[in-house]
Design a protein around this nucleic acid. Sequence first.
DNA 1: GTCTATAGCAAGATAGAC
DNA 2: GTCTATCTTGCTATAGAC
Lengths: 198, 198
Amino acid sequence: MGSRERLVETMSELMWERGYADTSPREVRQRSGVGQGSMYHHFPTKRDLALAALERNVADLLPAASELDGRGDPLARIEAYLMRSRDALKGCKVGRMTQDPQVREDPVLLAPVAAAFARVHASWVAALREAVAAGELRDDLDPERLAHTLMAVLQGGYVLAIAQQDPGPFDDARAGALDLLRAAAPPGRDDTTQTDRK
Amino acid sequence: MGSRERLVETMSELMWERGYADTSPREVRQRSGVGQGSMYHHFPTKRDLALAALERNVADLLPAASELDGRGDPLARIEAYLMRSRDALKGCKVGRMTQDPQVREDPVLLAPVAAAFARVHASWVAALREAVAAGELRDDLDPERLAHTLMAVLQGGYVLAIAQQDPGPFDDARAGALDLLRAAAPPGRDDTTQTDRK
DNA sequence: GTCTATAGCAAGATAGAC
DNA sequence: GTCTATCTTGCTATAGAC
């Protein structure tokens, strides 16, 4: 692996762990083993390196969200994505960036974050729309709104888990969201078809 | 107002705006107008000042949450707290701290955050329990879980809003949560009593 | 309690040789 | 492309007088 790739990979890790403002070029060099000269050859400023790392982190995240776009029962896909295995105490490598003052005030650094969330939102909306069409969700629910609600449950779940240093609140938050979705099945629907009742 | 109070107030503001790691003692002095000597007289280290500021921010937040504990219709209280006016683009002054590496790795600084969230959670649980008892929510919903879900909707809503630099996603997220709560009224319940249908 | 002066060290580069 | 040396600025204090 070349110096350039090692720099980007290391910066990606550090931005997930510590954010942008609190990660120094020095740390990147030490962890990656790339020298000063090489670093500034490939990336004239810390910000340039951060932008490359951020785009890499976004690219890491999007494939998972495309799980929502798959075929098969829409509500099952929604449930699968919601309950997907995630490291609650590490948080979201993209969502985290919104809390970094130097990122949120820099339109160029914030742009990939906004774009990533917009794409994930679109996938949520499509899946929720299908679920309504399939009669799995009441048709007076708004898929656009609900998509934001469910994304917020995940992003906020990380916040709660980190505060308590315990993944429990994250798991509770998403399980509670799923409970609500199930309770929002159209009235009169035969729910003896539910798969996992206790 | 004395120097000490001015320092704490200024640090509180800066920690909300920029977090802990990215706020310097220098900025605090300049914005507060308190001199170097006074600052280190009252607070031997930046961390000591941050702890006082954090406790102040927590104290600011808790009264609002006690709205959930009030009397009157439980679901109405839940709705009022959820839809309370909030500055989505500023985020939560307490939740924000969980994303600051220097806070999340410091048990002493994280403790007030954890305690605050635990108290708010307890208020949510109590209100949700009452709503179930009053027949406003299905009794197969778990108030503990749901409390985490609704807290996460708010915390995550801020993340979405900041990413898009638009309060819309925050408002969508909480409106969607409210839609789900209403859809989770016990089956067969007469909902012609709903107050705000379009 | 408040002031000014000073200090040690890290951040974030830049310069110029190889 | 990579190396070492150097630079400026800001962070986080400490010292000691008033």
